[in-house]
């Protein structure tokens, strides 16, 4: 199924160029590749391109410069940025400069295909206003949280961690929360991760999270599934030889990720929290039925059927109530919550 859209893929990693070419050719696009900015701009001047997919970080002429030159000479050409970990703020910057969208590394063939299809669709509609939809992709993903952390086909390119991409302030953000004070004392012994009943499934183990907090890898930490896997059993905390309150640090990180919605793509837990908070703010107490229904409707509607039988059995034993109980002085509670909210939290 050949279409008449031609794409130029620019990345200094040949493996990325090749994978993208393979994925996109299969979808019927005409694909050219370039391994650096200079080559890309040459090919761009020569050819008649519709879309340029360019890596943000490259030696010499980087993705940002390629974007600017392309937009200057041919504004109708769409540019999609490839971004690595830690470069999301620059990606946002790129969107402001007119990039159509961006693909965060690592990505699956499906993800790349989706994004390019959207760009193509938009082009074909020839929408008059060309305003880029900032951050829209991540919000979409949040609506449908991706289930797997590991994907065999994932295009995974390891890269050098560049100092400039680190967030110096991240450590202070964490240290200033109750329980976060001792994060500097970690000696990387791994007792926390060895004790954690769930660390085996985390993107980064609690020990790694500690190291990453200190190194300033804010985006990686906040977008990892680790923080949402913590079941709050405090075993790490009571065993840590340095008495670091790791569970509390996990809470601090969850709070930070919650505030900055772009990190909420991998986990269902934020959704559960959101509904729980809404219910408690409304009634002052939890209402299990409402929470379960709302959560599963959004997160996994099929599960409702699976759970309904158990719900019925609990209901028969009077362990399920249809109606919420509201506390008498709900206004007092709401005033308090509003005030706490106005105080801007702990940070």
């Amino acid at each position: 199924m050949k279409n008449n859209v031609s794409i130029l893929v620019v990345d200094d990693e040949p493996i990325v160029c090749d994978s993208c070419k393979k994925i996109l050719t299969e979808k019927g696009f005409t694909v050219e590749t370039a391994l650096n900015g200079e080559e890309a701009l040459k090919k761009f001047k020569k050819g008649d391109l519709d879309i340029v997919i360019v890596d943000l970080k490259m030696p010499g002429i980087d993705g940002m410069e390629v974007l600017q030159s392309v937009k200057k000479s041919k504004p109708e050409v769409d540019v999609v940025m490839i971004t690595g970990y830690g470069t999301i703020p620059s990606a946002v910057e790129a969107m402001k400069l007119g990039a159509a969208d961006y693909v965060p590394k690592p990505f699956t063939p499906k993800e790349l295909g989706q994004i390019i299809s959207q760009v193509v669709e938009k082009r074909s509609k020839l929408v008059a206003e060309k305003a880029p939809k900032k951050g829209a992709i991540l919000l979409d993903v949040f609506k449908k949280p991706s289930k797997v952390a590991y994907h065999p086909e994932r295009v995974w390119v390891k890269d050098i961690k560049i100092e400039e991409a680190l967030d110096e302030n991240f450590l202070n953000e964490v240290r200033s929360t109750p329980g976060g004070e001792r994060v500097m004392d970690c000696m990387q012994c791994g007792t926390c991760s060895g004790s954690c009943p769930l660390s085996y499934r985390m993107d980064y183990t609690p020990r790694e999270i500690n190291a990453m907090v200190r190194a300033g890898l804010r985006d990686e930490v906040l977008s990892s599934n680790s923080i949402w896997m913590c079941s709050s059993c405090y075993l790490c905390t009571v065993r840590c030889p340095r008495q670091i309150k790791i569970t509390d640090i996990m809470y601090a990180l969850k709070n930070l990720a919650m505030k900055d919605k772009r990190f909420l793509k991998k986990a269902k837990s934020p959704l559960l929290s959101k509904y729980f908070v809404a219910i408690v703010n409304r009634y002052g107490r939890n209402h299990e039925l409402e929470l379960t229904l709302k959560f599963f409707l959004r997160a996994n509607p099929r599960a409702i059927l699976k759970h309904s039988l158990m719900g019925l059995r609990l209901f028969l034993r009077k362990r399920f109530s249809l109606f919420p109980k509201r506390i008498k002085n709900i206004n007092q509670l709401r005033t308090m919550v509003r005030k706490a909210e106005a105080l801007g939290g702990l940070r």
Binding site: K254, S269, S273
Partner: peptide, 9 residues
């Protein structure tokens, strides 16, 4: 669950 959302509240 609430603690994950916002510690102060």
């Amino acid at each position: 669950v609430y603690l994950s959302y916002e510690e102060l509240i």
